[in-house]
Design a protein around this nucleic acid. Structure first.
Lengths: 263, 263
DNA sequence: CGACCTTTTGATTGGCGTCAAAATCTGTGG
DNA sequence: CCACAGATTTTGACGCCAATCAAAAGGTCG
């Protein structure tokens, strides 16, 4: 179990040069403010796959901007079942959400090797209260998270197994295209996809067994295939239809840029 | 169908005298700023029960602070099914969440008579960008909403029907105690409860028929009764256990006040 | 190569949805 | 105050989707 503080330190890099800044917390912040933010930043860190970034109910030492890699946010129940709350991709801001006890409401584990920028928690609060642009941006990102969570709630309660699988595959596909271009292969309509069937099940409330059956069915129908940590979309229109996908509530969009709502 | 603009106007009241300010957007904002906020406020309005405050996919003219009454936020699917995203109670801020198309992602309808304060949407944006305290507060409220939504997601996917009903009844009970004291009867451990079994089903993904069966079972077990727009908790400890309730992710807490996490 | 994780397939079970109908509650107007 | 329509609650019978249990096959990594 490797925690944030045990992760090896790296040379800090300027946030303004971060390639994910368009979707990140500090996008839209002016250069002179960025310099000030840089002073808040403590360290850039790198974690291997399948490590804990922070534990459920642990005291929040840092909040993080994810630069590269996949991170799963999850919560475990008393009965041992686990719910994936969000798959964090490059540009996402992690660990800011606390419960009434001041501890993390959920845990975070890396699904791949990941690079993050850590901010001491109290400095994040300071940053937010002193820099309106950051508060506004964080607000925007939170509102987007709510939309995505609402969509997951609908997915979980109002759709059958096949539609659920279709939905999360398609959503993840679009999010990766926007937030992690290096994981996207435009020629094949494919993305790198490190989620096991067990994880997929924990995202939408199905057993790994039933996830497998649905993936088989979608493959048999020539809609998508999911093999070897690779998700390939064969019939996007059909998939959109099956998933009843709503493009208006997709992942965060960088403000000021007018982007096709689908990407 | 009565919309915001058709609602009859009332004499504005000062937000700083609003009795729900402890949980509301403007709590923690200093008096001189409140005066400025008051200038942004357009109107106080009152709606009867079962009216649309705003429609799904409509253009957002206002955002609202709910002063009094219950409002359901919902989203309808292509197949006609409906998901309740949140039951808004006094102090909640509504209508701020937009999709990529700039339109409301969900609809809002009153469950009871309701009193609201309407802010022109563009002025809300102005307010947020100019007043760091408000941006921070909105951020805080959004993060709380995410927590609650996460909890609903867990409830929907990882709990059986009885646990689901137990969960939403208990959560609503606590939220009403904090946000709408006049709907709370401490002597009987009871609250005013305008939700029909159909609404309960739409909140957690059950049919009204099955909701009814579970309510019957919980009543037979002497845990709670739900009759005549009144929810009574008979065995709180047992209910907490059944629902596997997590007090850390409960409704917004007013900052600066140190409150028992349970209320 | 061997241990472990992940995927795959089949048989069986059960919880919740669906359909239907009766009972009860609520509000409205005569 | 009563009559009536519509909404909501209640109960029963039946069917199906997904969970559960079990086991084999394939992949991955030390």
């Amino acid at each position: 179990m490797v925690t944030a503080t045990q992760a090896r330190l790296r040379n800090p890099v300027d946030c303004e040069h971060c390639r994910v800044r368009d979707q990140a917390l500090f996008c839209g912040v002016r250069p002179e403010q960025l310099r000030e933010i840089a002073r808040y930043r403590e360290q850039q860190m790198r974690l291997r796959a399948h490590r804990q970034l922070f534990q459920e109910k642990s005291r929040p030492l840092h909040a993080y901007t994810l630069f590269q890699g996949w991170v799963a946010l999850y919560k475990t129940l008393d009965n041992g079942k686990r719910q994936i709350l969000k798959i964090a991709l490059p540009g996402d801001f992690l660990g800011f959400q606390l419960g009434n006890d001041g501890l993390h409401t959920h845990g975070a584990e890396t699904l791949t090797q990941a690079t993050l920028c850590a901010f001491p928690f109290d400095k994040v609060l300071e940053m937010v209260s002193k820099q309106p642009a950051i508060a506004t941006r964080l607000c925007e990102m939170s509102v987007r998270d709510i939309s995505m969570c609402h969509e997951h709630l609908i997915c979980a309660t109002k759709k059958d197994a096949r539609e659920k699988i279709a939905h999360i595959c398609l959503e993840t596909y679009y999010r990766v295209r926007r937030q992690s271009p290096e994981d996207y292969d435009p020629k094949r309509n494919a993305i790198f996809f490190p989620l096991t069937q067990e994880y997929l099940g924990d995202m939408v409330g199905l057993t790994n067994v039933h996830v497998n059956r649905m993936l088989k069915k979608l493959a048999a129908d020539r809609v998508l295939t999911c093999h070897n940590r690779r998700l390939t979309i064969h019939n996007e229109e059909r998939l959109i239809h099956i998933a009843q996908f709503d493009f208006n509530t997709l992942a965060p969009i960088s403000p000021g840029r007018n982007i096709d709502a689908r990407f």
